[in-house]
Amino acid sequence: MIELEGLTKRYGEKVAVNHLTFTVRPGVVTGFLGPNGAGKSTTMRMLLGLDHPTAGDVRIDGRHYEQIRHPLKYIGALLDAKAMHGGRSAFNHLLCLAQSNGIPKSRVAEVLDTVGLTAVARKKAKGFSLGMGQRLGIAGALLGDPQILMFDEPVNGLDPEGIHWIRNLMKGLAAQGRTVFVSSHLMSEMALTADHLVVIGQGRLLADTSMADFIRENSRSYVRLRSPQQERLRDVLGQAGVPAVEAGSGILEVDGARSELIGELAAEHHLVLHELSPQQASLEEAFMQLTAESVEYHAHSDTGPPDTNGWAGGTGTEAVSGGGWGEQWAREQRKRKAGG
């Protein structure tokens, strides 16, 4: 179990992590979501005692990281695929980590096998692709057979097969009752792996909820319709107080989950339907909505106009009307331009 309490990190004026309080529980995969620069990595580094918090506290099973004697046996972390000496072989990289925590040498070969790097165990890490480096980092995390695992953007640089592998690995680890804490900026990725969700934006906690609840609360449900008698259908629905919106290429959309009502109305008026499907906005869209709210909140401290050039706007989703999380970045870009 990982407990954060009012965890704060300030770099001069800039607040990277702002009073984060949440708990990561065993037995499930907890997704740690936020765009690049939201403070995910900083939070993880503080968890490992690498960065010192400005305020607040983070404990692992009730203890500070530095108080743990052989930490690799309690918590394994993949922070950065490049956090290793390129001139050292994969085997020796893992061996020096194992030795420092009293982990037997035989375990090195085991984890190399688990991540599929046995064939290149004696090769220098600098010749590794990003995906292989990621696998080696994961091997390091698994080395001490820890009860808590933490992965910072683990699917970065992995091929589809590798992504599939890491997903199953994380689910498997959680199913064994371990605590799995994984960060990502890809909502679609989280939807497939995480059971619980912690969302942060600009260092602030935006949501701490189960994945199902998150989608239910944040997503828009609507009904998608296709009909050869589109105009008639629209009129009928309009008269029944169910406004339909044209969504292009012959598709109508009706807000809310009212497919039964629409089906009955169509039958009553002898209208042919080619499609009648209840839809739920993806996690991606739910996520955008959440961040749009957070941007409105942040707008109080800023008089600049909203900007859609940033991260959220770049995905081309209409769900974000304000500026999304990219606004902060765009604002800084503007400042930099003005200053330099």
Partner: peptide
């Protein structure tokens, strides 16, 4: 300084936080 230039320092200190 190899620890720093390669990024190994974070892995090293995660293994030996003292």
């Amino acid at each position: 300084s190899n620890e720093y230039s390669t990024g190994m320092i974070r892995t090293s200190l995660a293994a030996v936080p003292q």
